[in-house]
């Protein structure tokens, strides 16, 4: 993890994204509620949250594919509402679902993108991109025949071909093997080093750790943002970890006890968390001296925090 960069909102930093109070509803159901975010240029922001929490909808509003019901702001200094076509020119958006043409060849897809952006040196750029991708030899292969990992890399190449200043990636590594994911993230970091700002949604905690900062969204509401350390510190959550023989079996017994907000088994480990420190200790007391189980006071992980935040907001939601 790159050293957690201090606060996002240092006044002199130019902001790549600066939006306030975005709201979007479909058929009367609010899907994104009062969303505000500021991202300085050149940073990688991770966008996390359960399925259906509104990540895709937010990304679509940022790149002009959806018009917010209310709220305003700028992307790359351009107004979200009035200058959407100009934002599109400098933004690369990678859709959640693979959306290049599967019946076209790899080269034809890249060439199509290059033409749409009216790029100069088109042939060379497409060739460079193909070589950089390692798909030059397979350039005349139909895109639909590529494996998942290759599709994702090609989609990234396609949305960065026009040298955008802002990248919006929607679950780019879903269903991709760990090795391909690592390479994908190396690529994202390489892009960020050239000054590109990246907002990337993901469900993977290890990927969250490779971001400069995290935004956590659940049920349309922004619940936390900042560096991982910040988020963990700011959440008043206490966690005990039990380790040993059958420690994971205690999960069902502890769940629902006073003071226990969640009891989650991780293999042979058990994480028990709650916001009330004393009540939590009282709840686990009966099991503290059980044969073969060791208990540690434990700093909550990001995942613990997210589970806690999601559970809390679900209560508000219903």
């Amino acid at each position: 993890m790159t050293a957690a960069t201090a606060s996002a909102a240092r006044a002199d930093d130019p902001l790549a994204i600066d939006v306030h109070g975005l709201v979007k509803s479909f058929d009367g159901k609010v899907v994104v509620d009062d969303f505000s975010l500021a991202i300085p240029e050149g940073k990688i922001f991770g966008f996390l949250g359960p399925n259906g929490s509104g990540k895709t909808t937010t990304l679509r509003m940022l790149c002009g594919l959806l018009t917010p019901d209310s709220g305003e702001g700028t992307c790359l200094g351009l107004d979200l509402r009035d200058e959407a076509p100009l934002i599109k020119r400098q933004t690369g958006y990678m859709t959640q679902k693979f959306s290049l043409y599967e019946d076209l060849t790899i080269k034809e897809n890249l060439d199509f993108v290059a033409r749409l952006y009216e790029m100069d040196r088109r042939t060379e750029r497409v060739e460079e991109s193909l070589k950089h991708l390692g798909l030059y030899a397979r350039r005349d292969q139909q895109t639909g025949t590529l494996s998942g990992g290759w599709k994702q890399r090609l989609a990234l190449a396609a949305c960065t071909l026009h040298e955008p200043r802002l990248l919006l990636l929607d679950e780019p590594t879903a269903g991709v093997d760990p090795n391909a994911r690592r390479e994908f993230w190396d690529e994202i970091h390489a892009l960020a080093e050239t000054g590109i700002t990246v907002l990337v949604s993901t469900h993977y905690m290890d990927e969250a750790e490779r971001c400069h900062e995290i935004v956590y969204l659940a049920y349309g509401k922004l619940l936390a943002k900042g560096t991982i350390a910040n988020i963990i510190d700011n959440t008043a959550l206490y966690t005990w970890r039990a380790n040993g023989k059958n420690a994971d079996r205690l999960a069902s017994k502890l769940r629902g006890c006073d003071g226990v907000e969640m009891a989650v088994a991780f293999g042979a480990d058990l994480h028990v968390s709650g916001t009330d420190e004393a009540a939590l200790e009282a709840a686990i007391a009966p099991y503290r001296h059980e044969e073969g189980i060791e208990w540690f006071r434990h700093k909550p992980t990001l995942e613990d925090v997210f589970i806690h935040l999601t559970a809390g907001s679900k209560d508000n939601f219903s």
């Binding site: 076509p85 749409l116 952006y117």
Partner: peptide, 10 residues
């Protein structure tokens, strides 16, 4: 789903 990609381009 290719429409989404097309619309995101200028």
């Amino acid at each position: 789903g290719t429409m989404e990609n097309l619309l995101a381009m200028p």
